[in-house]
Nucleic acid binder design. Structure first.
Lengths: 196, 196
DNA sequence: TTCTTTTCTTAATGTATATTAAGTGCTGAA
DNA sequence: TTCAGCACTTAATATACATTAAGAAAAGAA
């Protein structure tokens, strides 16, 4: 599938568009390639785009008060990512969005997104639904962090991002589940030992 | 303000409705009183309503694997609450929603909510926006849990729910910030000592 | 009121995870 | 080719929080 076909397929899963509506939508998209380790968004910037990943993988992370990176989310192919706080408020955000490998995205600017809302109200529906889904995923992760051990959080990571288990450096996964790389290394060894 | 005035005011902050649209909306609402400690929603049930709080306070919580309650969110006056996972999927949920004191809510059923979406598409917009806001609040809390100490999480609780600091039993707050009541008690004493 | 239950506190001990440090093996740049 | 840096591992020690237990104070029921 081409990037455009991929996003059209993604949208068609939620709303039904006329051909000319779809054409109008795709006319608003901007293609961008991000090289490994390059940032799509830097903390302190105002987030002006929602990004749809067509190839590769991004990660959203912040620096905590001790200067350590904490991964908030990964965005593999077919996912959307943005600093929602900054995108909505148009204030400087805290999120860094970085390519974990060479990555292709389609960008929809905030202004075009609002154009879309007024001209094709069905897009209110589309973004309501994907926001609801994000919210559910987020609440689940919050509960995981409140009630599960690191080991169980790792299992949930594996369920949520099966394609990333072997694709990502271990320290990224450690950061996502909220432990140090050292502890993660030890933990994984213990898990292997238990299974055998 | 009456309950109906309160919810109308809440909605008018996001979308502009004609008088008859507002009348149609309010005709869908159901008033319900929940006595202290009564559940509005019990885990295992399918969530059929979004609830808008007009008086009192609710809490959403789950039981973790050790059988301990973990508070996911509080819902004071003027907030919405539901088990989003269950409401969206119409599968049995994991959330319990309980009144912390005698509480009045306005209920909007899932089916009426969808009626609303088709008959007054502006409501797609309304719920998109409040879902976005929930998502942002949730992401912030997730980052808090990954990167802040219990003390700092308590400070953030105070900022988010200033009205609840003195209204809630301490053990509810402890559960929200993710520590035991014993540790919370000790921590608060230490915080007081530091300030003086 | 009196009794019971719940909330809150204090303190001793226990544990999951962090921190620091050191070492190995890869990778990419000069 | 050689070196610098990065990813990953192992291990010793440290710490933020949990668990258990017991008592005091407050709230609810009889």
């Amino acid at each position: 599938m081409t990037p455009i076909e991929l996003i059209q397929h993604n949208i068609s899963g939620y709303i039904r568009l006329e051909a000319e509506e779809m054409a109008f939508f795709t006319s608003l998209l901007e293609t961008r390639q991000i090289k490994k380790r390059q940032l799509l968004l830097h903390e302190g910037e105002i987030c002006k785009y929602s990004a749809f990943i067509t190839d590769g993988c991004l990660r959203g992370y912040i620096f905590d008060k001790n200067g350590f990176e904490r991964v908030l989310s990964f965005a593999p192919v077919n996912w959307w990512i943005a600093d929602m706080y900054s995108l909505i408020s148009q204030k400087p955000g805290v999120l860094n969005i970085e390519a974990l490998e060479d990555t292709g995205v389609l960008l929809l600017s905030k202004t075009d997104q609002e154009k879309l809302y007024t001209q094709i109200p069905k897009f209110e529906r589309f973004f309501r639904i994907i926001t609801e889904n994000s919210l559910v995923a987020n609440q689940q992760r919050l509960l995981d962090n409140l009630s599960l051990s690191a080991e169980e959080r790792y299992n949930n990571f594996c369920k949520k991002y099966p394609s990333l288990i072997n694709q990502l450096p271990l320290k990224q996964i450690a950061s996502y589940i909220g432990v140090t790389p050292q502890f993660f290394s030890k933990m994984r060894n213990e898990m292997l030992r238990k299974k055998s």
